[in-house]
């Protein structure tokens, strides 16, 4: 078996607030291979968001080992985390987080600014990414002129444009109606078939079933890790 893209060993995460210690994750271990489409599912307060923040280099572990591409990344500091985010990770958020009054093209090209990719190249890559999500006809539209589904597609284009190793989607359908939600989920499936590694955080069973592997988490621990279920590709009810 090749070196996994992500490998967690006994991850613990505690938050200290006014001397009160809240333990959010206690002993989480799993591995994710390159090219997987994984859903991390759990109710609110289960620790799934914290887990994603750690995996996405937005937060660090309290104890345990996080290996990324075989390298121990558990003890990275602020700037190293920022470099990992810019080089390795693309994020898709529940509330899209596009820059307001800014063109679709500029929004998609934004992460590449921090990677010091020259403007001309940024434009080419951003247009390519927008073509993948089917918005290449709206390059100059402003972000606030788009519908919710279109905004999330722009956000997906932004996440994939820099060609990161992994895409994190945090409740990507949470602000969308069912139909556009399905469109977005199918887009992830499509990206997956093209070889992208995707980790999606969700509290919805039906959304999770679009992924090929579902890790369920509750009270900071993994309660199941399933593959081989019948994958959804169509309409679901919330």
């Amino acid at each position: 078996m090749p070196t996994p893209l992500i490998k967690l060993k006994d991850i613990h995460k505690d938050y200290v607030n006014d001397d009160v210690v809240t333990s959010v994750l206690h002993g989480v271990s799993f591995a994710i291979q390159e090219g997987e489409f994984v859903a991390i599912m759990g109710p609110s307060g289960s620790g799934k968001s914290t887990l994603m923040h750690i995996l996405g280099f937005l937060d660090t572990v309290s104890s345990g080992v996080y290996q990324f591409k075989g390298q121990d990344v558990s003890r990275l500091v602020d700037d190293q985390l920022a470099i990992m985010r810019r080089k390795e990770v693309g994020f898709v958020f529940q509330s899209f987080n596009l820059l307001p009054r800014t063109s679709v093209l500029e929004n998609v090209a934004l992460p590449m600014i921090y990677d010091q990719i020259p403007e001309a190249e940024r434009k080419v890559l951003a247009e390519k990414a927008l073509k993948i999500v089917g918005l290449d006809h709206r390059l100059e539209h402003l972000s606030n002129q788009l519908s919710g589904g279109e905004r999330q597609r722009v956000a997906i284009a932004r996440a994939v444009a820099g060609n990161p190793s992994i895409i994190f989607a945090d409740e990507p359908t949470g602000n969308l109606d069912t139909r556009t939600g399905v469109e977005v989920l199918k887009m992830f499936q499509e990206l997956h078939t093209k070889g992208r590694t995707i980790i999606m955080i969700t509290h919805e069973q039906e959304a999770a079933e679009f992924a090929e592997r579902i890790i369920s988490i509750r009270d900071g621990q993994i309660i199941s890790d399933r593959t081989g279920h019948k994958r959804r590709t169509d309409r679901y009810t919330k």
């Binding site: 996405g56 920022a82 990770v89």
Partner: peptide
């Protein structure tokens, strides 16, 4: 604030 959060999440360092 959200814009700053976004910029950080896509790899902006404190310095940037």
């Amino acid at each position: 604030t959200r814009e700053i959060g976004l910029r950080k999440s896509i790899g902006a360092t404190k310095r940037e």
